[in-house]
Structures are given as C-alpha cells and as structure tokens.
Simulated scan of single mutants.
Amino acid sequence: GPAAPEGVGSDLFSLLVGLQHFLCYTCQEYVEDLAKIPRSFLQEANVTLRVIGQSSYHHIEPFCKLTGYCHEIYVDPEREIYKRLGMKRGEEVTSSGPSPHVRSNILPGSMWSLWRVVTGPLFGFQGDPGQQGGTLIVGPSHYIHFIHHDRNRPDHKPINSVLQLVGVQQVDFTGRPSVIHV
C-alpha cells in the first residue's frame, strides 16, 4: 500500500504525557527535562513525544517559553482524554520514592507555583488541580503498550525508563553537559 504521509501515522510509537496542570511546579520541572530530549534521539527511534495539558490553548506558548519544551503539545480543557484513559482525580498519599525530575522542595515549589499564577501573563484557568496525569506509550494503530497513572504530583514515571521501553537513547538529566558520541 501507499506510504503514510509525513507525520500522519508514520511514527512507530508515541509517548503521551498528561500533565496535572501547567502551573504545577512538578509538572514544569518534568517538562523541563522532557525538553532536554534531543529531537534526533526521537527521530532515530521513530518516536513522537506529545504533552497534553488541561488548560486553554492560550497557555501553550508561555508554558513552552518557561520550560524550553519544543516537541508537540496539546490541550484538553474538558479533560476528555484524561477521563478516557482512566487518569485519576485526587492525590494518593503513597510515595514511589523521590523523582529524579523534581528538584524543588514542596513548600518552595508550591509558593513558586502560586507566584506564577498571580504574576503570570495569562492569569486564569490552568486546569483542575485535583486531576492527575500519566504517561503512555501508544503505537501503531492506537494500541496502548504501556500506561502509568500518576498517583500524586511527584509520581511522574522516570523519563529514561519510558525512553528505554521505546528504544530511545537515554538522556543525562543531571544538568552536566553530556558527551554525545558520533
């Protein structure tokens, strides 16, 4: 049959990351790390990365500027995707240990989130703070290969463990310049 048009079903896998909301500091720090994944790493593995937020499309550009994120991003203000994928509302107290992607402590991080709400250029609805996100691997024909439902704000799936599942080269998130062997 004919080849799929570029960008339409031509990727083997999609990584979908549903965020709690754009002003959540743990989500911001997680997306800052997603932004560090080189586009070439994804292209070599035939993988697309898509982030979904639950606010208005007006918040996409400021959020991308803040986090440095340049991959695909969508919004679902009615949270239909979240509901269809079974992403939970409310926070569980359980801990899966410290996240390698959350650098802020809870109190300063929460204060920073509040400061961004009050001083942000688009003060307004950024999503339901009780809605949890998750991470999925979807690949050919919308088949879900893997799903992780976040149980609370810092419960994001470690990025490198998800990249490994889809054959994407691991990324150094420690902040040190990485050495890329060519």
Rank of each mutant, 00 (worst) to 15 (best):
V168T: 12
L49T: 02
R50A: 09
V162G: 05
E29D: 05
G124F: 02
E29F: 04
Y82N: 06
P158T: 08
V138T: 07
L42D: 02
S113R: 06
P77Q: 11
Y69I: 10
C27A: 11
P38Q: 14
G90E: 05
A3H: 06
S10M: 14
Q28F: 11
I106T: 02
I81A: 13
V102T: 14
D150G: 02
G18R: 00
P140G: 01
P77L: 10
I144S: 03
N152V: 07
F41S: 03
P2L: 10
E91G: 01
L107A: 14
L114V: 14
E92I: 07
M111K: 04
E44I: 13
C64M: 14
D150N: 15
G1E: 07
E72V: 09
Y74W: 08
R79E: 13
H21G: 03
E44K: 15
D150Y: 00
L42M: 03
S14M: 10
L66V: 02
S178G: 10
D76T: 08
G139L: 06
L34S: 12
L23N: 04
Q131T: 08
P2N: 10
Y57F: 00
E72I: 12
I144K: 03
F13M: 14
S161V: 15
G86N: 07
V117I: 04
M87I: 10
F13Q: 13
P77F: 05
P154A: 14
W112V: 06
A3Y: 00
V179H: 02
V31I: 15
S95T: 10
D172F: 09
H58C: 01
G127I: 08
A4Q: 00
Q54W: 10
Y82P: 06
R116G: 09
R176Y: 10
R84E: 05
P129K: 03
R151H: 09
G97P: 04
N152W: 04
G124V: 12
V102G: 08
V8D: 12
S99M: 08
G53Q: 08
G53D: 01
D11N: 14
D11S: 15
K157G: 01
S56W: 00
Y69K: 13
Q170S: 11
G134C: 06
I52F: 10
L49K: 05
F13W: 15
L12G: 10
G167R: 11
V47P: 00
H145E: 13
I159G: 06
H59F: 01
G86W: 08
K65E: 09
L16Q: 03
P177Y: 05
D172N: 13
L19S: 08
I144F: 04
T94W: 02
V31F: 11
Y69W: 08
V93F: 01
I144C: 09
I137P: 04
R79H: 11
L15D: 03
E44N: 12
K83N: 12
Y74T: 09
A3P: 00
I60C: 11
Q28I: 14
H71V: 12
T67F: 02
D155R: 12
Q169S: 10
Y25E: 01
D128N: 15
V31Y: 06
L107Y: 11
Q164W: 09
A35Q: 03
Q43L: 15
V171N: 03
G97Y: 03
I37H: 01
F125S: 11
L165K: 14
V179M: 06
D76P: 04
C27W: 02
S14V: 06
M111S: 00
Q164G: 09
L114Q: 14
